[in-house]
Design a protein around this nucleic acid. Sequence first.
DNA 1: TAATATAGTTAGGCTCTCCTAACTTTGCAA
DNA 2: TTGCAAAGTTAGGAGAGCCTAACTATATTA
Lengths: 149, 149
Amino acid sequence: MAIKKNLSASSEDYLEAIYNLICRHKVARSKDIAESLGVSRASVTGALKSLNSKGLVDYKPYGFIGLTEKGTQQAESVVRRHNIIESFFVNVLGVEQRAAKQAACKAEHALGPYVISRLLSFTEFSTSYSKKGADITAEFNKYCRSKGV
Amino acid sequence: MAIKKNLSASSEDYLEAIYNLICRHKVARSKDIAESLGVSRASVTGALKSLNSKGLVDYKPYGFIGLTEKGTQQAESVVRRHNIIESFFVNVLGVEQRAAKQAACKAEHALGPYVISRLLSFTEFSTSYSKKGADITAEFNKYCRSKGV
DNA sequence: TAATATAGTTAGGCTCTCCTAACTTTGCAA
DNA sequence: TTGCAAAGTTAGGAGAGCCTAACTATATTA
């Protein structure tokens, strides 16, 4: 059993980018990873080597870029955190989609399982509640308007 | 007018630590900064030099450590973000104080003014609402229990 | 006031993450 | 099939932020 070491924010970003590219385009090309993270192609090569040595990506120079089982798990964990945070921002706070995504990209590295699980529950609670009697979102918007926020 | 450059998370942490020490003990000693951030004294010296060169702290070797006007503003901005996030975690999500503080320490570097302002409003809304009819916190706790979370 | 303990600094080094420039490989088009 | 553009890699380097070890300054106290 490999020792579970916490990944750096940077490594998590690479895994997330690779995961999303594979989901959307079947393959993750180095150039596209660079583009989606706003870094140089050389930086991507370096990151791939590092992730490869950690057993998180399958990668040989000039070859196919894939995620290992372990890498997929880690990537899914990041993506899950991202989605929970983004969904909270959009559906509870009423933050605009684009800003929510941006903020989630940063916050996803900062929140641990405990807070994430509460956040998820709260978003579920809030949206499920809004379907029944008290519409929390609507009430919150009313509150904001009344305060001029 | 100085160019407003975003500070690194590390710099923000130092400013916050200095600010809190001055609030609590009138002075910020290098040793205490090191302790409260869990870094070496040498690292503190390095950070002080860097913050000094940015005009954020008043500092001379072996001398008094103070915050400049600009430094105080920045520190207050960080502390404010921290408090808003921590308060949301505790008072809305029902996260335990210690964990909330820890998470806020990380998240404070990740959230910008827009999201922070919505978060503040939501916490205000939630707590003010809980005093009137619908106690959101209580309802959320009920919801969590019903889901076994 | 002199000795010693504590606080702070300096020097040197490490890792991480990024960069540019130059080179190699690959794949497509003529 | 060759020849060129695009993609990817390598080499070399920068800077942030951290460390330890050794040194210097300050403060305490006998």
